[in-house]
Design a protein around this nucleic acid. Structure first.
Length: 551
RNA sequence: GCGGGUGUAGCUCAGUGGUAGAGCAUCACGUUGCCAACGUGAGGGUCGGGCGUUCAAGUCGCCUCACCCGCUCCA
């Protein structure tokens, strides 16, 4: 087995392009940053992963921790919703955090974190403080001058004190000597060393990175905006959803009212989401348009921890069942300070992380399992002024007749939220294998269930009626397995080359029609991973494949 | 957004101012006897895009776009 750290993303990206898995979006126009198109094989692979998820969630969910049957229903909500949805969810506020852009280096700083960053994580501030002691308020001009010319020049090239030490220090001296009874405090000192045109600009605040002048705070929008209607103004502004989850929460009441589900139950959804990421990076790992598979599991808060643990175990097991090796998968519990706004109060958030080649030996997120408490339903209940409480007739005190009186509550939510497109990436990375001892060294060891091409049927040579037999077997297999992926047939070129092509596309089985097929009615079945062959009856090929694909 | 690198055929890449190339891949025909065989032929490029310098630009300059690496960001 090849270690993921040894796999080259360039090779994987190249194979994806060559074989029609993933193309850069708008390629003929020079591309567009953060967007990707899925080709014939990539689309089928993505659909197969999506279908496997849907089956594991909605059609054939796992048994619960006590062996009980789980209830999960599907949903497909709109990408564009009333903007109030995003106000309620916190995305509008969260995504529009005021940022300040540095005029010197272009770096963005969150306005509300500026002073914390200056105090804790700015290299030049650390260095500068060694020549200035804010407690006494003394200004050692020669030492500051010296710092500006040496260390400052390296660490904070855009700081006013460095660009123009004389002027900056004279302003500072005027302040200190003019008001000797009011010592300069840290913040004020920082503002002074960042300012060289005091009369024109007032005191400036410096960039933690280069000391440059920071611009006015402005919202930094991570949601894509559009307009619903012909006129484009603030009244009809709309947003592309940054996650599929909110579509589920706002339909919670609809589903409860119309589908006879009882808490605990889940609502599952697969769909596109959009985030205007600052830096799309790493192939399809972080793109601006991506696909999520999210399930919101609604349960009573007393049971939340139980379900949180259950879904963690279950989700990791599921990814493993698709062929991701356990060495390359970890479950990582978030630290307290990492938790999202919606998860602060809950049992926690954990990520299923995969060891991608570009994160190896570290890991990158594949799926998040979050306890969102009842944050979202509470928010939507308040913002929409619609009662979303669930009436649970199995809870509450017992009445005279021995029946529970019932309890009204907003359920807690456990959310396993997986990236479909990240899943595709993890599967491709896991499947990509180089084995130079093989005649076809580069191949994709995709799980048979997910492989976009399920099988290929080859006539060994293009004569003696072999192509006709192959054609017939191909049609038969396509009828039976076509809904799960492609069945290929190919009579061109040497048999070895055809096997190699199928290896590269991740096709698990090749069936070859030879002379014996005509007389004995048998074919050879060739295994992608081992190259081994076995003879089976033509009539048995369908059942053989059915078993091999495990579907 | 910053710094560094890259961009030439579907893929991998040569090409240092003078007629746009190779290998593999693709297509056609022939051959074929189980692991990227062979022969003959064919198609495919406004050299990422734009502007400029020059008699002449894939090559030099400026701008721009995309990708990769490192920062940064990632509710």
């Amino acid at each position: 087995m090849t270690d993921n750290a040894d796999k080259s993303m360039d090779d994987i990206v190249s194979l994806c392009k060559r074989r029609g898995f993933v193309y850069p979006a708008s390629e003929i126009y020079g591309g567009i940053n953060g967007f990707w198109d899925y080709g014939p094989l990539g689309t089928q692979l993505k659909n197969n992963l999506r279908d496997a998820w849907w089956e594991a969630m909605v059609l054939n969910p796992p048994k619960g921790p006590d062996g009980e049957r789980l209830q999960i229903v599907g949903l497909d909500s709109s990408i564009i919703q009333n903007p109030k949805v995003w106000e309620a969810s916190g995305h509008l506020a969260g995504f529009a955090d005021p940022m300040r852009k540095c005029a010197g280096c272009g770096h963005f700083v969150r306005a509300d974190q500026l002073w914390e960053m200056l105090a804790t994580s700015s290299e030049w501030v650390d260095s500068l403080l060694q020549v200035f002691t804010p407690i006494t308020g003394d200004i050692d001009t020669p030492r500051l001058m010296d710092w500006a010319r040496k260390k400052g020049k390296k660490l904070a090239p855009n700081l006013a004190l460095v660009r123009n030490p004389e002027v900056t220090l004279s302003w500072l001296a005027q302040r200190v000597n003019g008001q000797p009874d009011a010592p300069v405090e840290m913040k004020e000192f920082m503002r002074h060393v960042a300012t060289e045109q005091l009369n024109a600009t007032g005191l400036q605040e410096p960039c933690p990175r280069c000391g440059g002048e920071l611009g006015e705070p402005a919202p930094f929008k991570l949601m894509f905006e559009t307009w619903a209607g012909m006129v484009q103004n603030d009244d009809n502004k709309a947003y592309l959803r940054p996650e599929t989850a909110q579509g589920i929460f706002i339909n919670f009441k609809n589903v409860v009212d119309t589908s006879r589900v009882k808490v605990p139950f889940g609502i599952a959804q697969v769909g596109k989401a959009f985030r205007n990421e600052v830096t799309p990076r790493n192939f399809i790992f972080r793109s601006r348009e991506f696909e999520q598979m999210e399930m919101e599991w609604f349960c009573h808060k007393d049971d939340a921890t139980k379900w949180y643990k259950f879904w963690q175990t279950e989700r990791k097991r599921w990814w493993e069942s698709l062929g991701l090796t356990s060495d390359n998968l970890i479950m990582r519990e978030h630290d307290k300070d990492e938790l999202s706004h919606y998860a602060k109060e809950g049992a926690g958030t954990a990520d299923v992380e995969y060891r991608y080649p570009f994160t190896a030996p570290g890991f990158g997120e594949l799926e998040g399992i979050a306890h969102r408490s009842n944050f979202d339903l509470t928010q939507h209940e308040n913002h929409s002024r619609t009662k979303l409480k669930y009436f649970d007739s199995a809870r509450g005190e017992l009445a005279k007749n021995g029946q529970p009186k019932g309890e009204h509550y907003l359920p807690d939510v456990i959310e396993p939220a997986a990236g479909l497109t990240r899943g595709v990436l993890a599967l491709l990375c896991e499947a990509y294998t180089r084995d130079d001892s093989r005649p076809s060294p580069e191949f994709l060891k995709l799980h048979p269930r997910l492989a976009p091409i399920k099988a290929a049927v080859f006539p060994l040579v293009k004569k003696d009626g072999m192509p006709e037999v192959a054609e017939k077997l191909h049609d038969e297999l396509q009828q039976r397995f076509g809904r799960t992926g492609f069945i290929e047939t190919d009579a061109k070129q040497s048999i070895g080359k055809r096997y190699a092509r199928m290896d590269e596309a991740g096709c698990p089985w090749c069936f070859t029609i030879d002379g014996d097929s005509l007389t004995e009615h048998t074919v050879t079945a060739r295994n992608r991973d081992t190259g081994e062959q076995q003879r089976i009856a033509i009539a048995q090929v369908g059942d053989f494949l059915h078993k091999a694909l495990n579907i």
